[in-house]
Design a protein around this nucleic acid. Structure first.
Length: 877
RNA sequence: GCCCGGAUGGUGAAACUGGUAAACACAGCGGACUUAAAAUCCGCCGCCGCAAGGCUUACGGGUUCAAGUCCCGUUCCGGGCACCA
């Protein structure tokens, strides 16, 4: 290192200078340009919760690295940013602090925008949007009305969580252990009307097009396919003669069921209906016990996870239905596990071959009849065995179906049921998307209720329906209900006094198309314009794996609707998807009696650990309350978010970005820990010092015209150059793989090599200059500020972003000899140096002649010699 | 409960298409420089063993000349489960 005094690395100055340059030259303003390949890089926009947390830093740094990398490779790049600004947390903050959600949200946006700017992301801020702006959400309303016209949007009843004390609808998150979060009251299910979007009309396409998404992670596609859940089965009816008060047969005397296991139909020993099923309601009229049970089923959660884990309970209705093939009378039960929302709200039960039915039958002592045999396995009703549910068996005890396999039996049964109205049917697990929310801080649903005309769509020329921004929710329901100025309106059809719809849209609507709006920002005449067809598809979408299903499926659906309406030409919105792993942190919570869930900051907690440092528990410092511990994603509501601000203030944005990228590969879950930030900062200081030394000491010796690759270098320099180019090759490959942690370590390897390099002579200066310029360029997507300044200081150019991405030179990579690992029976016993172009025979001979190999062969003859070129030789004896 | 992932030194991690396990760092230990400290630099650093060598990628099996990587089973941890976003 130089003895001279070099200017010290001061991140605040360096970063301010770089950002000033980008601002002054409007570097990141994206302009449509048909002459260049385009690259639309989009990170999922944040919910403006207050401050950034490390998950945001990870997400946006990944996006920024890809943005800058592609820019240097010659693409016309767009990276926009906006705010997913409607949602529940703003209402919660309003309840807590008596601040209107709008003010809270806009204040948060201002703070977080400044944080994003401090991180130096290459964002085109001229395209910024917030979903709570009327100029944005008017197009939610507009497209909703188009969907209504096409029958894609429609109205039906929905089941919601009802808090009987606050007289309000609760979000699933607000239901804790079956009780309202604020009141502690037992939550009830309640049916209310709401609007739905017919995503199931697109189920086939959403499933089939997964195969076209080559740039998506397999696991996301698998999850979506399972979620859509196409199953082929048979829908048929058990007949009955149950009549209602008017004497009419209920449902025309037919109990419809759907099954994927029609081959087990001869094993049906009972049927079960959901508590809301008309037959259950009918049976309960004169059966107080059943009525009480049905009432009980109305309590509790509507969440699938709760439904699936709760005890399976049921009660007989006293009614029976008739088996369509045997004519047998089959008892009818009400089961709390039967969902009214799936299929027809009724199931046939085959206890012998369905695990849930088996458990139910054992509990209520219902018959279990084996109708499938697999090999010689012995069937017993004592306990469930895995093979009972197998589709690999043949029918037994099934009369004319005996001996048939699964597919043949299903076909035969379906054929026999066809005469009785039964049919093969495709059933989807996917349900239509309920978008009505009984909440204030969201996009108003553009409907007016008129006593004379019914539900009337708001005419296009009256859009947007603007949400008043000065309401303060108090937890007792939607404050719009009290806003006469909002509610009272003339019917657009007949002019009579009418009422506005007060429900707002699910915030997933807002995030289903924002990627298209970025392309058409500023256009008040259309939802999207031709600029969307220039930028779309999003070439690279980046966001948390927690969005693998809902957000990503809704976005795919929405964009297909936009395509069908001629608004956009692409059929899929996101060509490539990178799902970053969650950034986890410890969370500490207490569930007080009477309901609710309180989270505490770790600083408020006395953490207890075992000898290995594993957390065993914790108590609140203030009063010793025993707390539950969980390792979970950073979020404001859990008081476990780590604000990057302290890191940025202390070390600078480049260090924060480098550390985040270096910590682990992007898709991996990351348990937050800032040990190691020092190391990242130390590295940047070394880069700084090395570059300053280069400028002071070596730069003047570098010849104007490069001589590298033309003459043979001295061995030490040839080795150095080879190492630098090898690391470069790997780093470029890793960037392509989107594995940024090894790109960061590659930069460290380059610097390690450069620091050890000989410095005498023209050739050394030239090799070092080349290496340093490669290092700065490879590092620049991760640490854009320091590399921008050093690029100029070292005289490589004005703007590193306009520099070409470095390519490894073949001349640097050639080598005469290679080292092969030498194994005997798969165990490493030495190594072998051979000419790079040595023939297989020669390598074998050299291996067998090797002293170490002979020692471990113990005189035995070689049975086989495996040569893996460039890697190893394995002698098997 | 169901669907999808993950597990490698004290720590974060690396390992190409099945081919040298632990690159690059953090922490730690030892040393240099310094009156001292900080900063910086150099060395050591999976486990057992004096060594030769043996063992080691959550656990138990299997395939292979060769397994962190492929297959089967298990445990634990994380994400999602439709009104958190």
């Amino acid at each position: 290192m130089s003895e001279k005094q070099t200017p010290a690395y001061t991140p605040s100055e360096v970063e301010a200078a770089a950002r000033r340059y980008w601002d002054d030259s409007q570097t990141f303003k994206a302009i449509e340009d048909a002459s260049k390949p385009k690259y639309y890089c989009l990170s999922m926009f944040p919910y403006p919760s207050g401050k950034l947390h490390m998950g945001h830093v990870r997400n946006y740094t990944i996006g920024d690295v890809l943005t800058r990398f592609h820019r240097m490779r010659g693409y016309n790049v767009l990276q926009p940013m906006g705010w997913d600004a409607f949602g529940l947390p703003a209402e919660n903050a309003a309840i807590k602090n008596a601040v209107p959600p709008a003010k809270w949200t806009y204040d948060n946006i201002d703070y977080m925008r400044q944080q994003l700017k401090a991180l130096g992301f290459a964002i085109d801020w001229s395209r910024e949007l917030a979903t709570c702006q009327p100029s944005y959400y008017r197009w939610n309303q507009w497209l909703f009305l188009r969907m209504l016209e096409k029958g894609i949007a429609y109205k039906k009843t929905q089941v919601v969580n009802w808090d009987p004390v606050d007289q309000t609808v609760l979000a699933n998150e607000q239901v804790i252990d079956g009780r309202g979060w604020r009141t502690g009251a037992l939550v009830e299910k309640r049916e209310i009307p709401g609007y739905y979007l017919g995503i199931t009309q697109y189920a086939d396409e959403l499933l089939d097009d997964l195969d076209t998404l080559d740039g998506w992670p397999e696991r996301v596609k698998t999850m979506q396919a399972n979620w859509i859940g196409k199953s082929t089965g048979v829908r048929f009816a058990f007949s009955h003669d149950v009549r209602d008060d008017t004497g009419a047969l209920i449902d025309d005397g037919r109990l419809w069921v759907f099954t994927t296991r029609a081959d087990t139909i001869m094993g049906v020993t009972f049927c079960a209906v959901a508590a809301e099923h008309p037959l259950a309601t009918h049976a309960a009229r004169n059966n107080p016990e059943l009525a009480a049970f049905i009432e009980k089923c109305k309590h509790g959660s509507v969440m699938e996870a709760d439904m699936a884990t709760m005890a399976k309970e049921g009660l007989p209705t006293g009614l029976s239905v008739v088996h369509p093939l045997t004519g047998e009378s089959v008892p009818l039960w009400v089961g709390n596990y039967v969902l009214m929302s799936y299929g027809d709200g009724a199931v046939m039960a085959v206890p012998a071959h369905d695990e849930r039915d088996f458990g139910f039958a054992k509990k209520y002592e219902l018959p279990i009849r084996q109708v499938i045999a697999v090999g010689n396995n012995a069937f017993s009703t004592d306990a469930w065995a895995e093979w009972y549910g197998s589709k690999d068996g043949v029918c037994v005890n099934s009369g004319r179906y005996d001996g048939l396999g699964y597919a043949a039996a299903v076909d035969a049964v379906a054929a026999d049921l066809a005469g009785k109205g039964g049919e093969k049917k495709v059933q989807w697990r996917l349900r239509d998307w309920g978008v009505s929310r009984q909440r204030y801080w969201g996009c108003p649903i553009p409907i007016i209720h008129c006593d004379h005309c019914g539900d009337v769509p708001v005419p296009d020329d009256q859009l947007p329906v603007v949400l008043p921004e000065d309401c303060i929710p108090d937890g007792s329901g939607n404050p719009l209900l009290k806003r006469d100025d909002f509610i009272n309106v003339a019917c657009p059809k007949c002019g009579a006094a009418a009422k506005r719809e007060t429900d707002t849209m699910d915030t997933f609507v807002d995030s289903s198309w924002y990627y298209a709006r970025y392309c058409s920002v500023g256009n008040d005449a259309a939802m999207v314009d031709e600029r969307a067809n220039y930028w779309m598809q999003v070439d690279q979408y980046i966001g948390g794996i927690e969005h693998a299903i809902l957000h990503l499926l809704y976005s795919r659906f929405w964009s297909k609707v936009m395509r069908d309406m001629g608004l956009m030409s692409v059929k899929e919105p996101f060509a490539r998807l990178l799902t970053q792993g969650m950034v986890l942190n410890h969370a500490w919570l207490h569930k007080p009696e009477g309901g609710g869930k309180n989270y505490y900051w770790e600083s408020e907690v006395e953490v207890q650990r075992d000898a290995k440092g594993q957390i065993t528990g914790g108590r609140l410092k203030a009063d010793g309350t025993v707390l539950e511990h969980e390792l979970t994603t950073m979020s404001k509501s859990k008081n476990n978010g780590v604000d990057p601000q302290a890191l940025i203030d202390q070390y600078g944005a480049d260090t924060a970005r480098f550390f985040m990228m270096f910590a682990s590969p992007p898709e991996q879950t990351l348990e937050w820990n800032d040990a190691g930030v020092e190391g990242a900062h130390r590295f940047l200081k070394r880069v700084w010092n090395f570059a300053q030394d280069y400028t002071a000491e070596l730069r003047a010796r570098v010849p104007a015209a490069s001589t590298l690759g033309k003459a043979k270098l001295p061995a030490a320099l040839a080795d150095l150059r080879r190492e630098l180019h090898l690391v470069l090759k790997q780093a470029s490959y890793d960037l392509g793989k989107q594995q940024f942690n090894t790109v960061a370590s590659g930069c460290m390897k380059m610097l390690n090599a450069l620091e050890k390099a000989p410095r005498d002579g023209v050739e050394a200066a030239e090799v070092i200059g080349e290496g340093l310029s490669m290092l700065l360029r490879v590092l620049s997507p991760i640490c854009p500020h320091i590399t921008h300044v050093l690029w100029r200081d070292c005289g490589f150019g004005d703007d590193i972003l306009s520099a070409e991405w470095p390519e490894p030179a073949d001349s640097a990579l050639v080598q005469d000899e290679v080292e092969l690992m030498l194994q005997v029976n798969g165990k490493l016993r030495g190594s072998l140096r051979v000419a790079a172009d040595a023939a297989k025979d020669a390598i074998e001979a050299a291996a067998l002649a090797n002293e170490s190999a002979q020692k471990f062969m113990e005189g035995k003859p070689a049975k086989k010699v495996v040569v893996v070129p460039g890697r190893l030789v394995n002698i098997v004896c």
